[in-house]
C-alpha cells in the first residue's frame, strides 16, 4: 500500500507533456481573468507563488506582469517541464521548487499573491495548505484559487467525485464553493470576488491525459448511463462520455493580523 503523496507522484510524473499541451489547462477564460486580476491588484514589482503549478500555465500567465513567480509542485518532471518551457520563452523570473502544499518551504510574508490552479483537488489536507498560503503572503496579500468546484447538490456531487476518482486514483475531491469559503475564512482571508465558468471535458482526451485504465474508463461510462436524470442534466453528459463541470475562481485578501 502506498501513501497519497506517492500516488499523486505516480499519477502525474509521467504526464507532464500531456498537461503542457492540454487545452483545458493551457487556455481557458479563468487564466486570462486571473492574469488581469493580479495585474490590477499589484505593481510589476510583485512576487507570486503558484502552488501545485503542474505544467506551469498559471505561472507563465502571471509572470508577464510580475517580477518573479515561484512555481511549486511535488512532481519533478512537471518542474523540469516548467524550467524547459520558461527557458524557451525567455522567462528567467520563474523559479521552480519541489515541495508539498501543506508544508511550504518559504519564509512568512514573502509573496504578494499565493495562487493555485487545478491542483487543490489533489490536496488531502486543504485547510493546512490554505493556512500555509496565508502564512507566506505579505500583510494585505492576496489568495487566488482556481479549481473544478464540487456540487452543492450531494447527489450530483457524489457522481462527480466518483467519476473523478475512477479516472484518477490520486483525486481527493473537488471542494465546493461553500467549503472554500469556510477554509478561507478560517485562515483569515476575506473574499473579494468569485467567478465561475462551465468547462466541457472532452471524454477521450480527459481519459487519455491521465492514462485511465480501460476497466475504469468502462466504469465511468457505466456510471454515466445509469446516473439519475438530475445528475445527467447538471453534468450535461453527452453520448460520447464528454461532460461539463464548473471551474471556479476565488479571489481573497489576507486580513490584517
Amino acid at each position: 500500500m502506498i501513501d497519497h503523496q506517492k500516488t499523486v507522484h505516480e499519477q502525474f510524473d509521467p504526464r507532464a507533456q500531456a498537461y503542457l499541451q492540454s487545452p483545458v489547462h493551457a487556455q481557458g477564460p479563468d487564466l486570462l481573468y486571473a492574469q488581469d486580476l493580479v495585474a490590477q491588484a499589484m505593481p510589476p514589482s510583485g512576487v507570486a507563488l503558484d502552488v501545485g503549478c503542474g505544467a506551469g500555465h498559471l505561472s507563465f500567465a502571471l509572470a508577464h506582469n510580475l517580477s518573479s513567480v515561484t512555481a511549486l509542485d511535488s512532481s519533478p518532471s512537471m518542474l523540469s517541464t516548467v524550467d524547459r518551457v520558461a527557458a524557451e520563452r525567455g522567462l528567467s523570473k520563474i523559479h521552480t521548487v519541489l515541495g508539498d502544499a501543506a508544508a511550504l518551504p518559504f519564509e512568512d510574508g514573502t509573496f504578494c499573491v499565493a495562487a493555485t490552479r487545478y491542483s487543490a483537488h489533489h490536496w488531502a489536507t486543504p485547510m493546512a495548505a490554505v493556512r500555509e498560503m496565508r502564512r507566506v503572503v505579505k500583510p494585505g496579500g492576496y489568495l487566488l484559487v482556481i479549481d473544478v468546484m464540487g456540487e452543492d447538490d450531494w447527489l450530483v456531487d457524489t457522481h462527480l467525485q466518483t467519476l473523478e476518482l475512477l479516472r484518477d486514483r490520486s483525486h481527493v475531491r473537488d471542494y465546493s464553493v461553500a467549503q472554500w469559503r469556510t477554509m478561507m475564512r478560517d485562515a483569515a482571508f476575506t473574499e473579494i470576488g468569485y467567478r465561475e465558468w462551465p468547462i466541457r471535458l472532452h471524454y477521450e482526451s480527459w481519459i487519455q491525459r491521465m492514462s485511465t485504465p480501460a476497466n475504469k474508463a468502462a466504469m465511468i461510462r457505466e456510471l454515466q448511463t445509469s446516473a439519475p436524470r438530475e445528475v445527467r442534466k447538471r453534468l450535461a453528459f453527452e453520448s460520447d462520455g464528454s461532460f461539463t463541470v464548473r471551474t471556479g475562481l476565488l479571489w481573497a485578501r489576507a486580513k490584517p493580523a
Binding site: 511535488s74 518542474l79 524550467d83 521548487v97 519541489l98 515541495g99 508539498d100 518551504p105
Partner: peptide, 15 residues
Amino acid sequence: AFPIRDDIPVMLEDS
C-alpha cells in the same frame, strides 16, 4: 539536508 537536483531544491522531508 535537502538535496538540490537539476537546480531544483527538493523541499520534502521524505527526500
